[in-house]
Measured scan of single mutants.
Amino acid sequence: MAAGGDHGSPDSYRSPLASRYASPEMCFVFSDRYKFRTWRQLWLWLAEAEQTLGLPITDEQIQEMKSNLENIDFKMAAEEEKRLRHDVMAHVHTFGHCCPKAAGIIHLGATSCYVGDNTDLIILRNALDLLLPKLARVISRLADFAKERASLPTLGFTHFQPAQLTTVGKRCCLWIQDLCMDLQNLKRVRDDLRFRGVKGTTGTQASFLQLFEGDDHKVEQLDKMVTEKAGFKRAFIITGQTYTRKVDIEVLSVLASLGASVHKICTDIRLLANLKEMEEPFEKQQIGSSAMPYKRNPMRSERCCSLARHLMTLVMDPLQTASVQWFERTLDDSANRRICLAEAFLTADTILNTLQNISEGLVVYPKVIERRIRQELPFMATENIIMAMVKAGGSRQDCHEKIRVLSQQAASVVKQEGGDNDLIERIQVDAYFSPIHSQLDHLLDPSSFTGRASQQVQRFLEEEVYPLLKPYESVMKVKAELCL
């Protein structure tokens, strides 16, 4: 049975990233139509530049190519590739079939990587351009969430054990800070992308030097003109047959890092959902379990974690691919890159769409948070109580021993009897502590235990987050809708 299948058929496997999760716009960027249309555009740009620099290419040939950029006979191309065992030459023939007058000058002087690699770089750039505003929107939604809850005390956790208090907004800023680093890295790697350009079979530009009869300047002009037509500021000066596969490492490393950030955020949300302090959106008709109707599973956060793990592992592909590119190139890269580049971007696209949807509907339960604080705060307040007693004339050592005994009794009630923490009640009825009984409410005010959390939130948002989001103001209103 021949390899390949009808990918629109229910009898043929289709990647869930495309069929179930990723956005239509990201799927289109990695589609065959987008790819092969870009090949034709690159052939047109090459012909236009070659004509401008004096090669015998007519206006009629150029116009014929322009008129057929979208006229792609995919069936013919597939048949040609089956016959020739070469995808680029299959599309040269297919393009030439609908451009008979231009057929002889299509791909003039070029090698397969002229269309293959340059198209990949265009796709990487455009895919990054799709991700950047999506990530900015996630940051914006979380920034709104953090600002609104900047002063809401909550129990902090280290080692997932109760620690000092923080605020809900401050905790959210930990998430935002990681995503801001990801946004900066995505922008950097996007701006650092260079075009492969017009380089020939081993990167020496020998074929173009021959076409222009040894004119170095025209060869350099050709490279520059096509690079500018493709919208790049610069091209690699040095290439082998391909652009260095280190570029793929750079791009997928940034995406993998984004995956790590999203995994951490969504894990926190899942843990908070278990504590009943916070939940992701839950639709009115949504079913959490087929057997347990009360369940409210954090399905979206779980999906993000599941896909983020996949995204983090994909960076190993370009690392290994770059390491086995012998001399000017081997074909070890080809099949692998067809999979890992598309999957990385479709996965990143999915987790950003999902995280935006989550961040637009996060639900906080202040009463649950308050109750958990009441359970733990008495123990945390013991040092403040000791200091207040010393100020009232008591002995630190005597007070410490009193607190120690009462704390152990209260802990026994919590752990052995399943009761509430009654340390404060014990202190309130103990005559030894009568000098500070009137101060206990103040000493137990949760806001006095959150330090500068709310001020940190305000400063972080104003100095770091809002300036970073400013270039994306025009796209901030787009909502994230999930079908599944």
Rank of each mutant, 00 (worst) to 15 (best):
A3Q: 15
G4K: 15
G8S: 15
S9A: 12
S9K: 13
P10M: 15
P10T: 15
P16V: 14
E25C: 09
E25Y: 12
V29Q: 07
F36C: 15
W39E: 06
W43A: 00
W43C: 01
L46W: 00
Q51C: 07
L53A: 11
E60Y: 12
Q61M: 12
M65V: 09
L69V: 11
N71F: 13
I72A: 08
F74A: 13
F74Q: 12
A78F: 09
K82L: 15
R85P: 00
D87V: 01
M89C: 07
F95M: 10
G96R: 00
G96H: 00
C98S: 12
A102M: 06
A103R: 15
A103D: 15
G104L: 12
I106V: 13
A110E: 04
V115A: 09
T119I: 07
D120R: 05
L121M: 10
L130H: 09
A136V: 15
R137I: 14
R137Y: 05
V138K: 05
D144S: 15
E148W: 07
R149A: 08
G156F: 00
T158R: 00
Q161G: 01
A163V: 02
T167S: 08
V168C: 09
C172E: 03
C172V: 14
C172N: 06
Q177Y: 14
L183K: 06
N185E: 06
K187N: 11
V189I: 12
D191C: 10
D192S: 13
G197Y: 02
G203Y: 00
S207K: 01
F208C: 09
F208T: 05
L209A: 11
L211V: 15
K218M: 11
T227L: 05
K229N: 05
A230Q: 02
F236V: 07
D248V: 02
D248Y: 01
E250H: 08
L255P: 04
D268F: 04
A273P: 03
L275A: 13
K276H: 06
M278D: 03
E279N: 00
K284V: 12
Q285G: 14
Q285T: 14
I287G: 01
G288C: 06
S289F: 00
A291W: 02
K295F: 01
R296C: 09
E302D: 02
C305H: 06
L307R: 02
V315W: 09
M316K: 02
M316A: 09
L319A: 01
L319P: 03
Q320C: 10
F327G: 11
F327V: 12
E328V: 02
S334Q: 05
R338E: 04
C340R: 03
L341N: 13
A344P: 07
A344M: 07
F345S: 12
T347R: 04
T350W: 04
I351F: 06
I351D: 03
L352K: 05
L352H: 06
V364N: 04
I369G: 08
R371M: 03
R372A: 06
Q375P: 04
M380F: 08
M380E: 11
M380R: 02
N384Q: 12
K391S: 13
A392P: 07
G394N: 10
R396V: 05
H400Q: 03
V413Y: 13
V414N: 04
R426C: 04
V429R: 15
D430Q: 12
Y432V: 09
F433L: 07
S434P: 06
H437N: 08
L440C: 10
H442A: 14
L443S: 04
S448T: 12
T450K: 07
S454E: 13
Q455K: 09
V457I: 13
V457F: 04
V457T: 12
V457K: 05
Q458K: 15
Q458I: 08
R459T: 13
E463P: 03
E464L: 06
V465T: 08
L468E: 13
V475Y: 08
V475I: 11
K477H: 09
